[in-house]
Design a protein around this nucleic acid. Structure first.
Lengths: 344, 344
DNA sequence: CATGCCAAGTTAATCGATAAACGAAATCGC
DNA sequence: GCGATTTCGTTTATCGATTAACTTGGCATG
C-alpha cells in the first residue's frame, strides 16, 4: 500500500504527497486558525481521510514539549471516593483533549516517588496529586521546578508551591461534632487517619473546636490514629470501647472506616442508631445503603475532581497567579447511624 | 546552569559532554549488555548523576516505535471489581517498566471508540480491553491491525483476533444454580446484564444447563435483561416479583445488582436468607459485609488483571501463537443471602 | 611482518511534527 | 505605476535517542 516506507504508519509526509503540498502546509492546515486557504485545507482533509493518517503525538511532543497528557496520582483506587474523583478529573480533561495517566500509590510514599519519576519520564504536562502518607516533598518539588503545574487534591502536604483543591474539612467536622453534641453525646471519639495527614489534622481541628465550644476537654484516648482502611475502622472501635470510660459516639476518619466500625459495633452488641452513634466522611454510595444507613458528610468527589482538573488546565493555560487553596463546600447528611436523642 | 541550550531539560548530549564521550556511547552505556567497558559505563553513570539527566521516552519512541505504555480500557471504574482488576494489571505492568493508561468508557461504545483512537494517538504498545456494551468491532481491529496486541479482559466480543482472559462464567453459574436447586428452589430468576453481553450469555448458559438437568423448563419472564447497575438490580427484582408466579430465588448478574436487589427485597418485605434467596457474582468486598451477607461466586479480579497483563506482556515479547482463551477459576462462596433449605 | 579479528567508540542518518524565516503572488494606496 | 502590505505556502533546522556502519588501536596467529 504505502510506497516504499518501512514503517506501516502513515506520516505527515504521506498526506503531503497525496495532497500535493508540503508537510508544513499539512501541519498548519490541521491546526485551527492558521494561514491556510479553505480550499487547501479541504484538500488536506481529504488526503488525511484517504491515507488514514494518524497524528503522532510523540513527534509533536519532541518538538513542542507538550504531551497533552497529565498524571493523576491517588492513594487508593479501591476507595469509591477516589474512583469518583478520578471520574470527575477524566471528564474535564477528556473534554479538553488531555489524556489521563491514573496511577495508584497504595499510600506508599516510596512507590509514589518511583511513580512520580516515571510520570516525568513519560512527559506529563501536569500532575494531580493526592499525596501518600509520608510523601517526600523533594520528589514533588522536582516536578514543579521542571515547570509542570501540580495541583494537590483532597489531601495535601505543606511547603509545596502548588494549588490545593480540598473539601472544607474543618468546618464539616465541626458541624458533625455539633450535631452529635446536640443529640446529647458528651463522650465522642474520633477514629483513625494517619498522624500528620492533612485531612485528619483538619477534621480533628473542627472536632476539637466544637468540643471546646461546648466546654468538653479533649481526651487523647478517644482519638486513636490508624491507616484509613475498613479493617482499621473495626479495630479502632474495639480499642476505644475497651477503655474505662468509653464513648457513646464516634466520628470516623471516613466512611470506609465507619463501615468497618459499624460491623464491629454489631459484633460488640452495640445498638448503632439508638445506643450508639457512628458517623463518617465522604458519603460514598455504600453509606446510604448500609444497615443502619450512615450519617456522614457528603463530599462530592466527582466535583472535587472536576474543580482540580479545571484549576490544572488554567495553570497549563499560563495562569501564573499565586498558589490557591480552593475549598469545596460539603454538607451534612443525617441518616440512621447517629440515632435520635441518646438513650441514657 | 545549563550552558546555552534553550530547554531547561538535560539531554543525552549534555551527559555526553560531561563524560567526555559521544551521545552514542551514553545511549549504549545506559542499556544492559552492550559493548561498553565497565570503566566508561561508570563514567557515564556519574555524569548522569551529576547532570540530573532524565530519559526522554518520547524521543526514544519516535526512533524505536516503543512507548512502554499500555492502555487499560474498562467500563466502570466505580465498580470495585474493576478497581481490583486495574490494581492487578498495574502491579504486573509496573514491575516490567510499563505505564498504564487507565481509561473508563462508562460502558458507552461511542465514547470507547473515541478513547481507542486517543490511545492509538498516544502510541500505546498494547491494550487491555473490557469491551463496552455494543462495542464497534471495527475500531478495535484497527488497533490490532496496526500490530499492537490486544487482550480482552473479563468480558469479550466475538470475532476479534485477540486473547481473552475471563472467569469461567458458565461453570460457575451452573454451580450456583445447582446450589439453589439443592436448597429446594424451583422457580429461580436470573436478573440483568445486557442482552448480548458475553458474561450474561455465559452465565445464563450455565443457569439454563443446570435447570435443564433438573428437568425445569426455562421461563423467559424470569430472566429480564438490564444494564448492570445497582439501581437496576432493585428495579428488576420488583419486576420479577410482580409476575403471576414469582421466583423464590434470584441470581443476579453481579454483586452490585444483587446488592440493589437486596435493598429492594427488604422494601418488599421479603425475608432474604429464609423466605427468599438472592445471590450474585464477583464477590466484591461489600458482599461479605452486607446484611444479610451475600452468597456469590468469588472471582479474583486482581488475579484476572495479573493474568491478562502477563498475557499481554508475552505478546509484546513476540509470542505469535494463535489467540488464546484463558479461563480463570472461581469458586462459590456460600453466605447468608441464600438461606438454608427453603421454607415452604 | 602482514593479516585477520576483536573490543570499544564514533559518525551520521533516522523517526515525524513544528515553526521561524523566507519567497512569491496578489492586492492596495495614492 | 510603483512600493508596501497581505496572503498563502515552502524551505529547513530542530527536538533527543537509537543504531547500522564505520574507525581505530591492540593483540594473536601463521
Amino acid at each position: 500500500m504505502a510506497s516504499g516506507r518501512k514503517k506501516n504508519s502513515v506520516a505527515l509526509v504521506d498526506v503531503a504527497r497525496e495532497a500535493g503540498v508540503s508537510t508544513a502546509t499539512v501541519s498548519l492546515a490541521l491546526q485551527e486558525g492558521s494561514r491556510i486557504s479553505a480550499e487547501t485545507r479541504e484538500r488536506v482533509r481529504k488526503a488525511v481521510e484517504k491515507t488514514g493518517y494518524r497524528y503522532n503525538r510523540f513527534a509533536a511532543k519532541l518538538r513542542t514539549g507538550q504531551s497533552r497528557t497529565i498524571g493523576l496520582l491517588i492513594t487508593d483506587i479501591s476507595n469509591p471516593y477516589f474512583a469518583a474523583l478520578a471520574s470527575g478529573v477524566e471528564t474535564v480533561l477528556d473534554a479538553h483533549g488531555y489524556m489521563t495517566f491514573l496511577v495508584n500509590s497504595g499510600d506508599q510514599s516510596a512507590r509514589q516517588s518511583r511513580q512520580l519519576s516515571t510520570l516525568m519520564e513519560h512527559g506529563v504536562d501536569g500532575l494531580l496529586l493526592s499525596p501518600a502518607e509520608g510523601t517526600d516533598v523533594h520528589s514533588v518539588s522536582e516536578l514543579i521546578q521542571s515547570g509542570r503545574p501540580v495541583v494537590q487534591v483532597s489531601r495535601w502536604v505543606a511547603n509545596l508551591p502548588c494549588d490545593i483543591v480540598a473539601p472544607d474539612n474543618t468546618a464539616m467536622a465541626k458541624e458533625l461534632t455539633r450535631h452529635l453534641l446536640m443529640l446529647g453525646h458528651r463522650r465522642i471519639g474520633f477514629l483513625g487517619g494517619t498522624e500528620g495527614r492533612s485531612a485528619r489534622i483538619e477534621r480533628l481541628a473542627g472536632y476539637s473546636q466544637a468540643l471546646a465550644a461546648a466546654g468538653i476537654p479533649l481526651d487523647p484516648a478517644l482519638t486513636p490514629t490508624g491507616a484509613p482502611t475498613r479493617d482499621n475502622g473495626a479495630l479502632l472501635l474495639r480499642e476505644v470501647m475497651a477503655i474505662d470510660n468509653p464513648p457513646t459516639a464516634v466520628i470516623c476518619y471516613h466512611d470506609l472506616m465507619a463501615l468497618g466500625a459499624l460491623r464491629a459495633a454489631r459484633d460488640l452488641g452495640l445498638k448503632v442508631g439508638s445506643d450508639f452513634a457512628i458517623v463518617g466522611f465522604d458519603d460514598i454510595t455504600e453509606a446510604a445503603l448500609s444497615i443502619p444507613s450512615l450519617t456522614t458528610v457528603h463530599i462530592d468527589a466527582e466535583s472535587i475532581g472536576r474543580a482540580a482538573a479545571t484549576q490544572l488546565l488554567a495553570r497549563l493555560d499560563g495562569d501564573e497567579a499565586e498558589p490557591r487553596h480552593l475549598t469545596i463546600p460539603a454538607h451534612l447528611v443525617v441518616r440512621e447511624s447517629c440515632g435520635g436523642a441518646r438513650r441514657q
